[in-house]
Design a binder for these strands. Sequence first.
DNA 1: CTAAAATATGAATAAAGGTTCACGATCACA
DNA 2: TGTGATCGTGAACCTTTATTCATATTTTAG
Lengths: 213, 213
Amino acid sequence: MVDPEDGQLSRRQRERLWHRQLILDAAEKLFSRKGFYQTNVQEIAEDAEFSVGFLYNMFENKELLYQELITARAEEYFQKTYEQIENANTPPDKLRAVLRTKLNFFERHRRFFSIFANISSQMDSGPPPMMSEDCMSRYRKYQQKLEEIFASGVRAGEFEDFPSSVAVLAIEGITNTIIGQWVHTGKNALESIDPEIIERILFDGFRAGRNEK
Amino acid sequence: MVDPEDGQLSRRQRERLWHRQLILDAAEKLFSRKGFYQTNVQEIAEDAEFSVGFLYNMFENKELLYQELITARAEEYFQKTYEQIENANTPPDKLRAVLRTKLNFFERHRRFFSIFANISSQMDSGPPPMMSEDCMSRYRKYQQKLEEIFASGVRAGEFEDFPSSVAVLAIEGITNTIIGQWVHTGKNALESIDPEIIERILFDGFRAGRNEK
DNA sequence: CTAAAATATGAATAAAGGTTCACGATCACA
DNA sequence: TGTGATCGTGAACCTTTATTCATATTTTAG
């Protein structure tokens, strides 16, 4: 085959990439529905309407397929978040931007959430995460970024002086359980739980009478 | 064998029960370390110093062993929580009691946490939970109990009027990520993160200047 | 049009691991 | 001490499933 001019992919190559994507889509669907171990490659291939052999032509093995899935979407997510952080000015606004972005991103991509939440919750505890080292380090970087935002808010006298690592855990914890609830109940989403409420809980807490602007 | 007088177990029966417990302990250790699918019964039996056959004599299968493990400890946890709720008077105090109990319980029983958190996070989202119906319903009851507490606090004018289901998700979310962090880092625990801080975040939020008693 | 290269297939392979069961050891009780 | 019940063993069995590979099909380019 002639080497197509740099950057340009032949029709065939583009098609191949598209087929690869179809497999990733099927995998995302099934992994999110049944988890890694209860999904077999046969099913994935079938769902994508390819043969197992082809799947193995595209991906080295089941585990790497899974990891690639996660890495790609996570990358997309982190990227979007960073952009929104840049667009906001004060630490509180940046934090709000993080919340909005997260809620929006996982509102689309609910499937991905079940995969990602599972993994990331295991990252701070349980069994061996099935996440690539690469992706884990990006996740840590993301957490650090949030910590920095919080810390700078503290320095600016806008936030109480909590350890920023704890604050970030709180943010992640709240959002994850709530998004999980969306994914679970399926139906309603951003409407069922107003993001505003999450912000208020995080910023002003449960105690009554604190919400004078 | 003579039927021992009601309630009294023969030495043999007691021993059997004890051996059963040894298997449960080994299972807890391994499941928490490596997860359900990556732990095989062979290992569990070996770790408990019994044969696979004996394990299958005590438990119908791997899945039920897992479920029993969860159910037993979860039951213990819910029980403890209910007790502490009874001992507190106002809704805020009850909520504080819930937090303290949770933190304390999982400070001991870290192993169990990796199992339980995994499961309960999946209960509101992802893949099929490996939790018995029975245990799930008790978990829901527990959540309802917390919701009631919050709601009554709202009625008493002590809490902001957030939907109680959201408030409970927030509580569970924050505590789970933080406990997860303990389990993860292994080292420090109740000392590394003062429970006080968690309370303050939940009650008064991040915003500075709200913590006049 | 044709040969080499790239694609795609799915039956066959092999490894892993859950479950069973025939049997030996041990205990309770006379 | 004898005998039946209970306890405990682990090798063998069998299902499941990730992975391979010989083969068929399609494309490319000369």
